[in-house]
Structure formats: structure tokens, C-alpha cells
């Protein structure tokens, strides 16, 4: 019989979060972010947390909600350009920020979940990202040593999931979610559709349930679009 990860809702899913913890949050921009858990973090009012997330949301949405309540002490991200409050807090020194290359961020999370303490990458060599890091040549090319990242809690958002914690993501909403699921001591998955055990095809599961500790049916996803770009239908003339 499978091991159930099912919890009743976002309150149970987020129990045990304390001030000062390190949290990972999946998503790229506003795509595939754990909206329910972010709202719960606001409600709980946890303070001084370190957030590992590729982006920092926008003003008033996504991680922007935690920023406006000054709940975040430190951000570890690759791109934060969409958020005025973020920039203000960073330039005033209220917020500590560690900007790291996107691929290194992804791999550091993957490594953290995979039991790899560190790895060498060419990304960032010769830049301020490399400051203080070990440099080593492989095949004549310099690489820098990057260390693994883990978190007390990882919050991911999936399209479909089951009680065993197995997850399937939709389109580009997958992004950082699978690696962060691996790297969380407690990984919380909120899903758009909680389906009965056996309904997910084992051939098509993206994140095996072993990486997930708590799963729940998410509610009222807004799924806000950051840059709505469209083309016009060509008229037949």
C-alpha cells in the first residue's frame, strides 16, 4: 500500500514553519508558483525567512506579498527585475540578496536533493559571482565550485498529483518545481487536481512521491499572466 502524503489543506501543509527558516518556492516569474502556500505564509506572519526562488514575484503578487510585509530577510534568486518594492528594500539594505546564475540555481537545488554537496560549472567564471569561490580548470577551461542548496520547507505547485505525492506539471509551469521538491526537508505540493491513486500513468510522472511529504488540493488559483503577448488572427482576404 502506498504511503499517504495527503493533508487536509494549506493550514496542515504549512504547520511547523518557524521564523528564520530557509524556504524554497518553485516557479518562474509568476508561472507555476505555489499561490496557496504563499498566502498561508502571509497569514502565518513568519519573519526573517530566507527565500530561494528564481524570481521575487511582482508588487503585490507571488513573493511580492511576503516582501511587502517585510517577512523576508534574504532572497536567493537569479532575476528580480519585476518588483519595485524588492529593489527598494535591496538598495536600502533591508533585504539581503544573493543573485546567482539561473542554471547554477537549478543545479544547486538538484544537487541538494541528490546528495551531491558541490559541483563545478563554467557559469560565472571571471564575474563577481565567482568571488571567493574555488576555481579549477577542466580540459583547459576554468570552472567555479558551487555548493548544493537545501531548505527546511520547499513549496511546489503541480498540475496533477495523487495521495502518494506523485506529481505532474503542466507546460512551462514545471521549471524549478521538480528540483526544489527534491531539496526540501519537508516538501509541500499544492495541486490543481488531486486525482485518485492509480489514475496517474507511472510512465508520465515528473516528480516521484518520495520527494513530497505533504500534498493538498489547492484552491482558487489566480495564475496571473505577467506579459500577455498575442498575435492577431490573419484575415482571409
Amino acid at each position: 500500500m502506498s504511503i499517504s502524503k495527503l493533508v487536509s489543506g494549506v493550514e496542515d501543509a504549512c504547520s511547523g514553519i518557524q521564523d528564520g527558516m530557509t524556504l524554497m518556492l518553485g516557479g518562474f516569474g509568476l508561472c507555476g508558483i505555489p499561490e496557496n502556500c504563499i498566502d498561508q505564509l502571509v497569514k502565518l506572519g513568519v519573519k526573517d525567512v530566507t527565500c530561494i526562488s528564481n524570481n521575487a514575484g511582482v508588487d503585490g503578487f507571488g513573493l511580492g506579498k511576503l516582501l511587502s510585509g517585510h517577512q523576508i530577510r534574504k532572497m536567493i534568486s537569479s532575476y528580480v527585475g519585476e518588483n519595485d518594492e524588492f529593489e527598494r528594500q535591496m538598495l536600502s539594505g533591508e533585504l539581503e540578496v544573493d543573485l546567482i546564475p539561473q542554471g547554477s540555481l537549478a543545479e544547486r537545488c538538484r544537487a541538494g536533493g541528490a546528495g551531491i554537496p558541490a559541483f563545478y560549472t563554467p557559469a560565472g567564471y571571471g564575474t563577481e559571482v565567482a568571488e571567493g569561490k574555488e576555481v579549477r580548470d577542466f580540459e583547459g577551461k576554468p570552472h567555479i565550485l558551487e555548493t548544493a542548496l537545501t531548505a527546511d520547507f520547499a513549496f511546489v505547485k503541480a498540475w496533477k498529483g495523487d495521495a502518494a505525492g506523485n506529481l505532474i506539471f503542466k507546460a512551462t509551469a514545471r521549471n524549478f518545481n521538480p528540483m526544489m521538491a527534491m531539496a526540501g526537508k519537508i516538501t509541500v505540493a499544492e495541486v490543481e487536481e488531486l486525482v485518485p491513486l492509480g489514475e496517474l500513468n507511472p510512465n508520465e510522472i515528473h516528480t516521484p512521491g518520495i520527494f513530497v511529504q505533504r500534498i493538498f488540493q489547492g484552491k482558487s488559483f489566480e495564475k496571473r499572466i505577467e506579459q500577455r503577448t498575442v498575435r492577431t488572427r490573419k484575415t482571409n482576404s
Binding site: 521549471n175 528540483m179 496571473r224
Partner: peptide, 28 residues
Amino acid sequence: EDADLINAGKQTITAMPGAVYFDSATSF
């Protein structure tokens, strides 16, 4: 438009026949 289907500029896009989605570690 699909909020779950965007490019690196966060713009809504489409997928061509034969397209594939993957996680960020695979991407890099």
C-alpha cells in the same frame, strides 16, 4: 493565452508540433 505556457521573458507563447517541456536543471 495560457498562463502555464511562457518564454524566458515571461511572455505568453505557443508550442510547435514536436515541442517538449522540461525542468530548469534539464534546460541548463
